[in-house]
Nucleic acid binder design. Structure first.
Length: 648
RNA sequence: GCCUCAGUAGCUCAGCCCGGUAGAGCAUCUGAUUUGUAAUCAGACGGUCGGGGGUUCAACUCCCUCCUGGGGCUCCA
């Protein structure tokens, strides 16, 4: 008999050879809801056998570990269905992901019809309740089993090759190379749904085979699946493309070009409000402002290293009589020249050069998406020129600045990412390994000293140096970089950046920090739209006050009111049409003004206003002076909430 | 750039599968109405059905191709 400690510290005795599933059933009952077990902290299948004394703990389907297993098993179920329906298809890899799973197949691409058929077959297999079994094999045997699948063979040779074999999982006639664990029966995979297909390259390498990827979602319970579906529906309502159109914030016209958005008057108000905020902030933080041209000569971008590293990301050159010109994809080379325009003293450093510029990047056509990915990027960009000793303080100031901004915008859900180079992929980066190691360690210690929690990510650095990115998840659940602070150790050499140090000699140790705390205006506004569902706080609302008259009699008072508000810097519109008041409210709702102000007999006689908030709350008979004072405060203090109407 | 789905009036969409040269609601305009918090009534205007080519007596509808958009891949200074 072996001693088995259960997770509630109880110890029971079982004979060797009993399955973990049987032990779980014995302790927790038939319907324990567990999909696998932790045995001494290691995940095992329910069907694996007890061999030694151990501690076991059930893994419930609704836990993170359990969902991971369910989703992984669901990927196998998908592969089983696909290979049954399309025997020529070769499964490659199929991992669990957030909310579900995907599986890549080497096969012809498929459409919606086939997707439905595959899902139907998955449900049939699920209902058959096939057992899922595990077998251990050595490498020779594995190669034989997967002799027809070059992708699995590649995995066996590269990943497992030096180990002693691996496991396979079988369900029906389907066999997959897999470490496991998995659920024990196909019937445990009930709450799934196939969502989409796409093409992906084997090993994410565009030179290798193109594979058909099928995505699905999978949950432990019906509620989990329904909640996710609801969440996606809610996210669709917040879509910045939909709301951007409703509120007339921007347009994209194919006659201008793909990825080249036009800021309409309402969107321009939001954009310039953000710019004014950044101007004020940067003044406080000691930045100087410049404007540089949108294009420059080939030589400039060769010097900066952008053409050698990034040519395909730039618009093609324009031929002029004195050579080729490129649209700038970044401001830094021009700022470097501003720095170099005169001799700099150590007394002047750090020098912070900022610009509201637009840069142009040749993003792949398939990636363009509303304002989230565009080819014209409006940026609140800046470059800081400093000594190595000053880098830490400048980084700290920038992180503080970013936190200030986020506080004003009411953002709370984000994380810091230290983006490192990938020493395996040297052609993507400037080949100076010792500089990479030194600067990366420097940034790491800066973050440690600041006590800011962060994650590290390999292969996310800029080509000229490591960076700190601040990551957000959009309403649709996609992760995007919102802010970036980058350390550049290469510019000083390429552009000959120097300063005169205390000894009077030229010092060439000038470090450059590239930073963009507010992403691009395009992406930032897209994010704000989704963050607030278009219900902007007063200071960002394109229309701050929508005045609505009850009848013709009130036109004069309404027009005067609008004029008074405009004179104190409040954005007000008036609707004096002869529609009913209910109709006017309904119509103006899509424009999402911060407040609607209703003007009737009562107001025009008493010189008051009646306010209607976005959620329908009201405040009637407010004195005009008080209204102007309070809304002005919301505006100038950049308050996140609308507080003029407090109670029902 | 690759795969997939889609493109019909300013907006949201029906018609397409089973070919017979276009419909609705909202918006706009005109008239009536003068209204107290999520749609007052009536009329009018508005589309060479994304572009081009093909099949057919006949194409919004079937086929090819290009463009644009959505979703994903890849890329992202």
């Amino acid at each position: 008999m072996l001693n088995v400690e259960i997770d509630n510290n109880e110890v029971r005795q079982y004979e060797a050879g009993i399955t973990f599933g049987d032990i779980i059933k014995d302790v927790f009952g038939r319907k324990s809801g567990s999909v696998a077990v932790f045995v001494n902290g290691i995940e095992k299948d329910m069907s694996q056998f007890l061999e030694t004394d151990c501690k076991i703990e059930p893994i419930y389907g609704e836990s993170d570990a359990g969902l991971y297993i369910l989703r992984h098993s669901c990927a196998h179920l998908l592969a089983q269905a696909v290979t049954e329906l399309f025997p020529y298809a070769k499964p490659t890899i199929g991992p669990p992901i957030d909310h579900g799973f995907y599986y890549d197949f080497y096969m012809d691409s498929i459409g919606d019809e086939e997707l439905k058929k595959i899902e139907k077959r998955m449900r049939e297999i699920m209902k058959k309740n096939q057992p899922i079994s595990r077998e251990e094999h050595n490498n020779e045997s594995l190669r034989e089993i997967f002799i027809d699948n070059q992708f699995k063979l590649e995995i066996i040779d590269e990943k497992i090759g030096h180990e002693i074999g691996s496991s396979i999982y079988k369900q029906g006639n389907f066999v997959d190379l897999c470490r496991g664990p998995h659920v024990s029966f196909t019937s445990q995979l009930r709450w799934f749904k196939l969502t989409s297909t796409s093409q992906a390259y084997w090993r994410a390498d565009s030179k290798k085979e193109s594979l058909t990827r099928i995505y699905g979602m999978c949950f432990a319970t019906k509620e989990g699946l329904k909640n996710r579906e609801k969440q996606l529906q809610e996210a669709a309502k917040r879509d910045h493309k939909k709301i951007g159109k409703e509120m007339e914030l921007y347009m994209i016209d194919e006659m201008i070009g793909r990825g080249l958005p036009v800021w309409l008057p309402n969107g321009e108000i939001i954009k310039s409000s953000i710019e004014n905020f950044a101007l004020e902030t940067e003044d406080r933080y000691g930045y100087q402002r410049v404007t540089t041209p949108v294009l420059g000569k080939k030589q400039l971008f060769e010097t900066s290293g952008h053409l050698p590293h990034y040519a395909e990301g730039m618009y093609p050159p324009m031929k002029m009589d004195d050579g080729e010109y490129y649209l700038k994809a970044m401001n830094c080379p021009m700022h470097h020249l501003v720095y170099r325009n005169k001799k700099r003293s150590y007394r002047d450093l750090p020098i912070r050069i900022a610009e509201y510029g637009t840069v142009y990047r040749n993003e792949l056509s398939g990636t363009l998406a509303g304002l989230l990915r565009v080819r014209m990027l409006s940026m609140n960009d800046a470059h800081i020129y400093c000594t190595l000793d000053q880098v830490a303080e400048e980084f700290a100031n920038n992180i503080k600045m970013v936190q200030d901004y986020y506080k004003t915008f009411g953002f709370e859900d984000y994380y810091f990412r230290l983006s490192l180079w990938d020493s395996e992929n040297k052609n993507k980066y400037i080949d100076q390994p010792e500089n990479w190691e030194a600067t990366q360690n420097h940034l790491r210690s800066i973050l440690d000293d600041l006590g800011v929690p962060y994650e590290e990510s390999i292969g996310e650095a800029a080509f000229y140096g490591p960076k700190v990115d601040i990551q957000f998840t959009t309403a649709i659940g996609r992760e995007e970089s919102m802010s970036t602070i980058q350390l550049d150790f290469a510019a000083k050499e390429r552009f000959g950046l120097t300063y005169t140090d205390e000894t009077g000699s030229d010092n060439d140790e000038v470090f450059v920090i590239h930073r963009a705390p507010l992403s691009t205006h395009e992406r930032f506004v897209a994010f704000l739209i989704e963050h607030w569902s278009g219900n902007f706080p007063t200071w960002l609302s394109p229309i701050q006050v929508q005045i609505i008259t009850i009848s013709e009699k009130h036109q004069e008072y309404a027009n005067n009111l609008a004029q008074i508000l405009k004179e104190v810097g409040i954005r007000a519109n008036t609707d004096t049409s002869d529609n009913t008041i209910g109709k006017k409210i309904r119509m103006h709702r899509t424009m999402r003004p911060a407040y609607m102000v209703i003007i009737g007999d009562e107001e025009s006689i008493n010189g008051t206003v009646s306010i209607r908030a976005r959620d329908g709350r009201q405040r009637n008979g407010m004195a005009l002076d008080e209204f102007i004072e309070e809304i002005s405060l919301e505006n100038t203090n950049r308050k996140t909430t609308l507080d003029l109407v407090k109670d029902k």
